[in-house]
Design a protein around this nucleic acid. Structure first.
Lengths: 211, 211
DNA sequence: GCTAAATGTGAGTGTTCCTCATGTTGAAAA
DNA sequence: TTTTCAACATGAGGAACACTCACATTTAGC
């Protein structure tokens, strides 16, 4: 983490300098909020650093004090929403006592997930354009891995005799495809998106049901 | 198709002006070849218009005579490779006499597909970064639709009594996920990529086997 | 050979990311 | 309180690129 100075957890390792005084911590939040607003409005392609600075009412230099480049802002936003989603997944899968309940929980989870994707313009935008740069792709990949592990652990809890490796790969793929399906569904007319999500759930559940 | 002038099919509608003389037709090919070489070498993020012009040994102005912007070059390349892949799919699925044969053909197809993705740096790159701009995303989406239709038609041939709408959605999703899986697999270490492709085939075949 | 359309050219324009030299503020030590 | 030094803030300007445009050259049809 070369380049950072003070205490506090780094925001996923992307911050150039850790804000240690209150003033600067608020600044980082203002930057993120401004970026979020602009993305909601014009999309992340249309995100301009000068605009972010203007909306956050700080100078362009201050912006670069904390974020090494434009994609770092988007990355930070992406990691925050990923963390939220992960939390949902963790909670959603927690209670299941057997495989059938787990499958139901999974289906419910993706319905929620879909709703969130539909409702949150920033998530929609970042996910759609997620492949724009290597770093973003890596973040999404890592996210799929973590979510896959959560799913695999949940399955292992209700079906302990399962082959671990097959399960890990399958769970990873199911979550990754879930991402892809969400991306696809929100770019389609609502009715078609719904059908696609249903089809995905059918496929994923058929596979999960095997374990 | 405003802005184009002469006969000849437009390259997917992206060309600003149709080259009608041989000289200019060759130029367009040289541009595409140069772009392809650069992408293979440095990736499409590192594609600079001035470099394309230099490598193609033409002026920057000539480049813009035919391609309205940078993404038009990438789009043209993407559409060409998509057309090739589509051809493979069409041929691969053609011979199957029953559902079982179709499933085998599908599995073979994706093995080939995977090989192509691994071997062709330009395809790898463009697919990985496919979500970078809206136009690219639309092209890939349309490609999934067409491929989905090819698959649906093949299934319908061997299982005519199938519900058409469910089949269409499922086939679309299977092909779209196939794309996503390929993108994922090539970004992973080889061994893990292989496992993911196998897992995908299992899931897709289970679903296809239903019809 | 003449003319008009097609094609070719590259210096220059505009936009945007990001840096850096310099100024300001806060907090801890003296 | 004063001093002092990091932390923080600033915005003009450098650098990189995508893309344009006024003008030059080539080709095809007469």
């Amino acid at each position: 983490m070369a380049g950072t100075t003070a205490g506090q957890a780094d925001e996923g390792g992307v911050l150039r300098r850790m804000p240690s005084q209150r003033r600067s911590r608020e600044r980082v939040e203002r930057i993120l909020q401004a970026a979020s607003d602009i993305i909601a409005d014009r999309g992340s392609d249309g995100l301009k650093m000068s605009e972010v600075a203007a909306l956050a009412e700080i100078s362009i230099g201050s912006l670069y004090q904390y974020f090494p480049d434009k994609s770092a802002i988007i990355r930070t936003l992406a990691e925050r929403t990923n963390a939220e989603c992960r939390h949902c997944i963790e909670e959603g899968l927690a209670g299941a006592a057997n495989l059938e309940e787990l499958c139901q929980a999974f289906a419910r989870l993706f319905d929620e997930y879909y709703e969130i994707f539909l409702a949150e313009p920033v998530i929609r935008d970042i996910r759609s354009g997620a492949q724009a740069d290597k770093a973003l792709r890596d973040i999404e990949l890592e996210d799929s891995r973590i979510n896959g592990r959560l799913l695999a652990d949940a399955v292992k809890r209700v079906s302990p005799e399962t082959d671990a490796e097959t399960l890990a790969t399958t769970a990873f793929l199911i979550m990754h495809m879930g991402e892809a399906t969400m991306r696809l569904a929100i770019s389609l007319p609502r009715a078609e998106g719904d059908q696609v999500v249903e089809a995905y759930k059918r496929m994923a559940l058929a596979e999960l049901g095997r374990f």
